Computed example of a mutant assay.
Amino acid sequence: MPPTLRTPRLLLTPYAPGDEEDFVALFQDPGVSRWMGDGLSPEADDRALFGRIFSKVYAQNLFDVWAVRRDGRLVGHAEIKRTDEVDGHEIVYALSPGAWGSGLGTELAEALVTYGFGTLGLTEVHATVAAENEASLRLLGRIGFAHVRDIEEDDGGLTRVLTAVRRPLSATSSPL
C-alpha cells in the first residue's frame, strides 16, 4: 500500500473502495482519457481497472498508485511504476478538467518525482507523453524533464519519452 503524500493543496492517498464512481468518472472524461493509455475505454473496462488496483496492485505490492484529492474530493489519479518501455520508473498522472490551469499538475508531478528520488531512491524518473499533449510537455519541461527519444506507436502516433535526473547534492547544499 502506498504511503500518503501531501503537497500544499493536494492529498495523495491509497484508493478506497468508495472511490470507484469518481475513478470511473475521471477515466470516462474524454478530455482526460484522450491522454491516458489508448484513449477512452468502455466503462466496464475502467471499473475492472479499478478492481485490479485492489486485487493485484495493492494486494501484490506491484507499484504505488494514488487517488489525488483536493479539499476532500477526488480530482485525479497518480502512479509511479517500473516499465520496460522506458527501462525505469515512469510517473503517470491525470487531473479532472476542473483542476486544469491552476498549477495542480505541476504540484502533482513534482510530488511524484520527489517521491521517486527520495523515498524510492531512484536516480532517474521518466514520463511518456503524446507528442500532441503540449500542456504536459511544457509542465514536465518546467520541472526539469528533458526529451530523450520518441516512440512511434502502432497507430502512427508519436510518444515522447522524457527523463528527469536526480542531481547529486553538493557539499554546501541541503538535502531538503
Rank of each mutant, 00 (worst) to 15 (best):
M1I: 11
P3F: 06
T4I: 11
T4E: 15
R6Y: 07
T7G: 03
L11T: 10
Y15S: 07
Y15T: 03
Y15L: 09
Y15P: 03
A16R: 15
P17M: 08
P17Y: 06
G18N: 11
G18D: 13
D22P: 03
D22K: 13
V24S: 09
V24I: 10
V24H: 11
L26A: 05
L26G: 09
F27E: 10
Q28N: 14
D29W: 10
G31P: 01
G31K: 13
S33N: 11
R34H: 10
M36R: 08
D38I: 05
G39C: 08
L40R: 15
S41H: 15
A44R: 15
A44P: 12
D45L: 12
D46Q: 15
R47D: 07
R47Q: 08
G51H: 09
R52C: 01
F54Q: 08
F54M: 06
F54L: 08
S55W: 01
V57C: 04
Q60G: 01
F63P: 01
V65Y: 02
W66R: 06
V68T: 13
R69W: 07
R69M: 07
R70Q: 14
G72D: 15
G72Y: 09
L74D: 02
H77V: 02
H77Y: 11
I80W: 00
I80H: 00
K81V: 02
K81F: 03
K81G: 05
D84Y: 05
D84A: 15
D84H: 12
E85Q: 13
I91A: 01
Y93M: 08
Y93R: 01
Y93V: 04
L95C: 05
S96D: 03
S96C: 07
A99N: 00
A99W: 06
A99Q: 07
A99E: 01
G101T: 07
G103F: 06
L104G: 00
L104P: 00
G105E: 03
G105I: 03
G105Y: 00
E107M: 06
E107K: 05
L108C: 03
A109H: 03
A109V: 01
E110V: 06
E110K: 15
E110S: 14
E110N: 11
L112Y: 00
V113K: 10
G116Q: 14
G118T: 12
G118C: 04
G118A: 13
T119H: 15
G121S: 14
G121R: 09
L122R: 15
T123P: 04
T123G: 13
H126F: 10
H126S: 13
A127Q: 00
A127V: 10
A127P: 02
T128L: 06
T128I: 12
V129A: 01
V129Q: 00
A130C: 02
N133C: 06
N133A: 08
N133G: 05
E134N: 05
L137E: 07
R138L: 04
R142F: 04
I143K: 13
F145C: 09
H147L: 12
V148N: 11
V148R: 15
R149T: 12
R149A: 05
D150F: 09
E153T: 10
G156A: 06
G156R: 09
G157P: 01
T159Q: 14
V161I: 14
A164F: 04
R167Q: 15
L169Q: 13
L169W: 09
S170F: 02
S173C: 05
S173P: 02
L176R: 14
